[in-house]
Write a protein that binds this DNA or RNA. Structure first.
Lengths: 333, 333
DNA sequence: CTGTTAGCGCTTTCAG
DNA sequence: CTGAAAGCGCTAACAG
């Protein structure tokens, strides 16, 4: 294994000059740096992560914890989240990995924590009353939750401000004259927050349950006209399903947005524009949100465990009106 | 941060005794060990991964590289593979993480290799002529490919012995009297290996293309009778789709296995028994295969890069006959 | 702008 | 069975 000593010798400089040439943490003359880089190239030198972490006093690594990777239907959003974290963390000079945990098994989490390998943890895909949050909290690892869950105490998280999101969506629906709208989600029950905001707008809600798949959305489109004659609009929490719905709409005799006006609150901007220009969205830049989460994580780690830096933040989507949201009661041919 | 020095002081022993108590690499008296463990417990000591890796001379870490995590439809098999690797690697005292790589982007791969963070890499989800294999080979990182791809040179891999698998499946079909069978896969073209073995058995093949989803399989079932009247059997390479097919069969007027005899060659034993007892399988214990891959990886790392230990191996599935594979031309009510 | 050097926390000889 | 001590390769003072 070649070390900085080897390349120092070859370049005819000191070992620290090698380090600084590579890290850029202090000024190095162009000439010297080039000699160092040439030596690095020539010897195929690679830095040693463990040594750097040890000497630097910190593992420059953040760990994403996400179970169910292969069990739940994948969403473009999940990919964007991982991608965002990777780049946000990298931007701050750290690295990130996914720590695979078997479903519902705490032992994998404990192994990680016991290892002291990770400077911090980003918890993803949290479920109701997620036990992992308790474990992380107990072990005093710096952690941020991507999403929210009620575990009985406060913790740092990054998430969308859904209250604002729903307020935007429902007030738009209200303004357009809709009075009965479907809530497309994975559950039979409608989120209380949605109920509250709909009530404030005097809008009647109907639950539309679906799997978050293209076919799930298609299936809904097929029976939509018969099953829900009164529904003139849909607020969708399912990114993939609503694409399937819109794609199938025409062949099912549904005119979007004339017959059904749709606002997607959980879609990537990219998805909305590329596959379903008929959908208005309260846009969600999952990548940027996750990137900011990654940056925050690194800052929290560098700030040290003791410093109680408050890094909670909410992410608020912007309303993207493509003027495709139909007005109710007009032009009904 | 508490270190071994702290716990040595508290336990009244030397620092090396602490290390050995924890690693078990040399005999320690029961009494001493208990004092050490008590101190560890009391101070909440966690070992420092970076220091251990540095002193030990090796990063005790294996990296799984798998792109498309969130783009491709997930399969139970992928989960079983990850799980198997984690446990195979852990069994040998190493750890494993997933290194997220953006699709088709080499730079993430290069970052990892440059980091010298990983003792070895397990490449998953390889595509045709996968560039990552070239990169790994060039960087001289110990690596094993889970699956195979043609990149123009030899490398170590762990994969099923599909030639044996197909031989088993087709000779069984032949024995049962089938002469025309469908090949359920994601492609229009049929794998040349399958063609060769079918030809040897004088069996005519028809390509059945499907997405590997429950709904993909269902769709196929719906049109199967009309579209493929001559097909009496299916060899399936798609684990999820075939489950969908079998689930929908009855409601589509298909009697499995009387009308269509099925052998799944890419299913987990678990899937076959739990969801579709009518399917015979050339069983695939993805977990065990991956576990063995993980163990091999660690051994390769410990053997050192120079030692050209030959670790290639093939995994051969066992034929699981549930006596549900129908005989052609009999009992056709 | 560059060099010297003292550790980081652990593993592993070597010496009892 | 236990201790002492020499590093592992790097970072970050400190000293020019």
């Amino acid at each position: 294994m070649t070390t900085r000593a080897d390349i120092a010798k070859l370049a005819g400089v000191s070992e620290s000059t090698v380090s600084y040439s590579l890290s850029g943490k202090r000024p190095i003359s162009e000439k010297t740096r080039n000699r160092v880089l040439a030596a690095v190239e020539q010897l195929g030198y690679k830095s040693n992560y463990a040594a750097a972490a040890l000497a630097g006093g910190l593992p420059r690594m953040v760990t994403m914890m996400t179970s169910n990777l292969f069990l739940a239907p994948p969403s473009r959003i999940d990919g964007a989240l991982v991608d965002g974290i990777v780049h946000g963390v990298r931007e701050r000079g750290f690295h990130s990995v996914i720590w695979p945990i078997a479903n519902g098994d705490d032992s994998d989490v404990k192994v990680l924590l016991q290892l002291n390998f990770s400077g911090g943890v980003i918890l993803m895909g949290v479920t109701d009353n997620d036990q992992r949050v308790h474990l992380l909290n107990r072990e005093k690892v710096p952690f941020i939750v991507l999403g929210r869950t009620d575990v009985g105490f406060k913790y740092n998280f990054v998430d969308r401000d859904f209250e604002s999101v729903y307020k935007i969506a429902f007030s738009k629906f209200k303004e357009l004259g809709h009075t009965q709208i479907g809530v497309l989600s994975g559950n039979d029950a409608i989120d209380p927050l949605i109920k509250k905001i709909a009530a404030a707008n005097k809008i009647k809600l109907v639950s539309l349950k679906s799997k978050n798949t293209i076919d799930g959305g298609s299936a809904l489109a097929k029976t939509f006209k018969q099953s829900y004659p009164g529904i003139t609009a849909i607020v969708s929490l399912l990114d993939i399903a609503i694409v399937g719905f819109v794609n199938s709409a025409k062949s099912c005799g549904l005119d979007v947005p004339r017959d059904v006006s749709i606002i997607g609150v959980n879609m990537l901007e990219e998805q909305a524009t590329s596959t379903s220009p008929q959908i208005s969205t309260v846009a969600f830049d999952a990548y940027e949100m996750a990137k900011s989460c990654g940056r925050n994580m690194v800052e929290a780690i560098e700030a040290g465990k003791n410093s109680k830096k408050k890094i909670s933040e909410l992410w608020i989507g912007d309303f993207m009106d493509r003027e495709t949201t139909s007005r109710v009661g007009e032009d009904s041919k």
